[in-house]
Design a binder for these strands. Structure first.
Lengths: 110, 110
DNA sequence: ATAACACATGAATGTTTGTTCATATGTTCA
DNA sequence: TGAACATATGAACAAACATTCATGTGTTAT
C-alpha cells in the first residue's frame, strides 16, 4: 500500500540522518560562509595574518564592520587573534577552511 | 615607513585574492548551506531521490516551505527534479555537496 | 597624565530571508 | 468533464542580519 511505502521511506530516511541538533549546528557553521564580507576576510587571511585595519582596507569596509564580522568568525572558531601592542592580528584557525573554499569554487566554476 | 608597509601589504594581498565577483558568488553559494531546513533536505537526499511530500514529512515542515526551499536549491544547481506523473522527485545534482558536508561536520565535531 | 591610536561594542536602521496562508498550475483517474 | 491530488508560486509577516555611527576600552609614547 502506498501509505506504508511513504511512511516507511520517511522513517528509514530519518533514521539514517545525523542528529537534528548536529544539522542545526552545521547550518550555523555554513551561515558564516554565506556573507561576502566574511568570505573576503577569510580569503585575505589565506596569505598571512593581518591586523584589523589592514583587513578593513583590503575589503574596503569600515573598521567597525570588520570588527563585528571578526567576532562572528571568532565565535565559530574560524579565526584566532594575537594581540601585539595596540594591534590585533587575526589568522585562520582551521585548515578545513581552505578546502571548503576550494570545493565551493569548483562548484561555481563549471 | 609604516605607511608604506601597510599600503604594500594591502595591495599585494588584494592582488593575490580571487576576483571580487567570484567571492560574492561564493558567498551566495554558501548562503544556501546556511539554513537548517535546506541542510536537512540535502541530507535526506543523500540516501535516495524523494518527492516533495516525503521531504516535507522528513523535515517536519509545510509542503509550501519545502517547495520554496527546493527552488533555492535548484537555482544554485544543488538539486535536480524528475517529474513522474503528479509527483516531482528531487535528487542531488553534485557530488561536491557530500564532501562539503563532511568537512563541515569535521569542523564542528572537535 | 594625556594625547593619539587600534580595536571592540552597543544602539539604531534598513534589508534580507524563512515561513505560512491562500491560491494557481498541472496531472491522474473516474 | 470534473474531482482529487501533488507541487509551485505570490503576498504578507516576523525574525534575523549587516552596516554604520557614536562611544568605550586598552595600549603606546610624549
Amino acid at each position: 500500500m502506498a501509505h506504508d511505502d511513504h511512511k516507511t521511506l520517511v522513517e528509514t530516511t530519518k533514521a539514517k540522518m545525523p542528529e537534528t541538533d548536529t544539522l542545526f549546528e552545521l547550518a550555523d557553521f555554513f551561515k558564516v560562509f554565506g556573507d561576502s564580507t566574511r568570505i573576503r576576510i577569510m580569503c585575505a587571511l589565506f596569505e598571512q595574518e593581518l591586523n584589523v585595519c589592514c583587513i578593513a582596507d583590503i575589503v574596503g569596509m569600515e573598521q567597525s564592520t570588520v570588527s563585528h564580522q571578526l567576532r562572528v568568525l571568532r565565535q565559530e572558531n574560524l579565526v584566532k587573534v594575537r594581540r601585539d601592542g595596540k594591534q590585533s592580528y587575526y589568522s585562520l584557525e582551521d585548515e578545513h577552511i581552505q578546502k571548503i573554499f576550494e570545493m565551493g569554487l569548483e562548484h561555481i566554476l563549471e
